[in-house]
Amino acid sequence: MGKRWSNRIALGVLWACGLITVAALGAVIVYVFVRGIGQITPEFIFTKPHGVNAEGGIGPTIWATLYVTGLSMVIVTPIAVLAAVYLAEYAVQGRLVNAIRFAADTLASVPSIVMGLFGFAFFVEAMGFKFSVLSGALALSFLMLPIVMRATEEAIRAVPKYIRWGSYGLGASKWQTVSRIVLPAALPRILTGIILAMGRAVGETAVVIFTMGQAIYLPLSPLDPGRSMTVHLYTLAMEGINMDAAYGTALLLMVMVLFFNLSARWLAARNRRLR
């Protein structure tokens, strides 16, 4: 009797845990949506802010966000993919591989504020890139490296071995096999990883605030400064004068992040079906 009841109560609690977690996400999304949707107009998306309290649109911040995210993706993808090729295809378990994995894990868990200060000290000051999209992209690529590396390595490992044997059997070299057979087969999963990492970069604040600066500016050259949407939201929310724009920015930011996440999921799901 007691056994049944304790079971029922415990299962109820576990159900509640699942529900609370979903509700937490739902609350954030619904709240940001309801308060922000009224702000979204073409002017808000495309024009630049003006005046001391940033009235008007947030165009330059959207552009700066996309720019820095795109640039960091271009920087990180070749390095991360080739690194993963090494780990999955070439490396033999040993000290070096251990060190690489430990370093990747560490990079994945370094607090973003530390990455921001590092980017500031190294790229902004020491390398002389100033507050710029380039500094921001380089700092972000450190953050994205372990994510893309992990996804690519798993993708490569998931490619069935017999496909490789076929290739070797035809006399292909290792690089031919990897570049023509393995990587194409692993491509959808690699893309999923890259998109997820980009979603992460879009939502990052502490890194870009100290590497790209806070100036509202439409960056054209990689050496131009800019203010990301996250930094804009932070500034507006803490300044607290123009809260309407803060809600609008939060909504667009969520839409962008969800877009990246959902397209990664969609890609992964489609890939599973194809197999």
């Binding site: 576990l14 996400l25 939201l233 932070y234 996440n261 999921r265």
Partner: peptide, 28 residues
């Protein structure tokens, strides 16, 4: 506990929670 159907809702929710930018959490 969750049936596959429920899991299909809860697990993406958990994953997406990880993707919400921290400044949005802070704002909320």
């Amino acid at each position: 506990i969750a049936t596959p159907g429920i899991r299909r809702i809860v697990r993406p929710a958990v994953e997406m929670l990880a993707g919400v930018p921290s400044v949005v959490f802070g704002f909320f």
